[in-house]
Amino acid sequence: MKNGRPPAGPAGSDSRPFGRLLDLGPCEPFRAQAFAESVAVSVARGETPDTLILCRPDRPYVSLGFHQVSSEELEFAELKRRDLPVVRRVTGGGTTFLDPSQVFYQLVYRAQPAPGLSGGPTDFAEALRAPLALLEAFGLPARLRPPSDLVIAGRKVSGNAGGTWEDAHLLVGGLLGTADVEAMAAVVRCPSEGFRTFLEEEMARALTGLDQELPDPPSPAELSRRLRAAFEKFGPWTLAPGPPLPAEEERFLHEVLPRHRDPAWVHLPPIPRAPSAVRRALRVAGARHCLLLEVPGSGEYFVLAEGGKVLSAFRAGPPSSEAPPGEPVLPGGPAWEDLQGTVRSWAGA
């Protein structure tokens, strides 16, 4: 027990504090992603108990992490072609592609105190007990890969992120019914189609969906029902279902939604950054990243790195005329050593 509060435990034993369950069902993308921000205000003000939101998007969309730069991350022409809205979430992490196969859970709880979730704003282990238990109940060898991924045989089936908003903490995530890696790779800005193929292959290795893991995967509605039961049994709170407060609907409609639809919010200007040889870093799984590096005098490179180690590398562009773009960089050569040093420095920073 940390901070003098009881640990989460199954109902029946049942010292868990009381929480509200909002089961919103299928929602349009902005509601699916951002209704929790309206709930956070109510929770922070003490107008409602700590709350678990369950929902799922009724159409595909793309979500940016709060600090990401839209022009660096997104392939706008592809977003338009696929008619995908972009939602900048208030929580952390990278660019994600969401679709109706996914079921979301969003825990919203007071920053001080946070009964049932004792570890503060990044208490993923306690928050993820329920989805982890559900995967185990499906017979899947799932585990938590710190800090916040649920994986099956090393492949991510659930990504999760946290945030603190209006004096409330949010821990949000979802279970992948289908890992649509083609769509995921298509909407992320890539410097070349070769890199996009490379990215898609990496994502296929790094991600999985329940449709790949189970012979008879549940529908999104059934998955949501099972997830609700898992949170009732293993979640941090004893849940009581309830509707959104009228004030939460009002706030979402008149404050949250207009902010999210404002291009100034979606396309927040870049934040100043220290000069770096790493022009872009895209996490594909765990500590594994795709990096775009610029090595002075040598050119640009795409690098697949894990921690501080280069796994593979390809030349991307000028200034070298000796090796054309797309050529693999061979381990042991001078360029490889340059890249290794840059990546080591980046990982250790």
């Binding site: 709060f66 600090h67 929580t91 992490g93 990044t122 992120a161 946290g162 603190t164 209006e166």
Partner: peptide, 25 residues
Amino acid sequence: ESEKWVGHFSNPIDGTVLEVNEAWY
């Protein structure tokens, strides 16, 4: 932002910003 978490913090008092700690950038 730390790994997978973003915190947003509200201004505690009305006023004019004089200086930001640029070391954070």
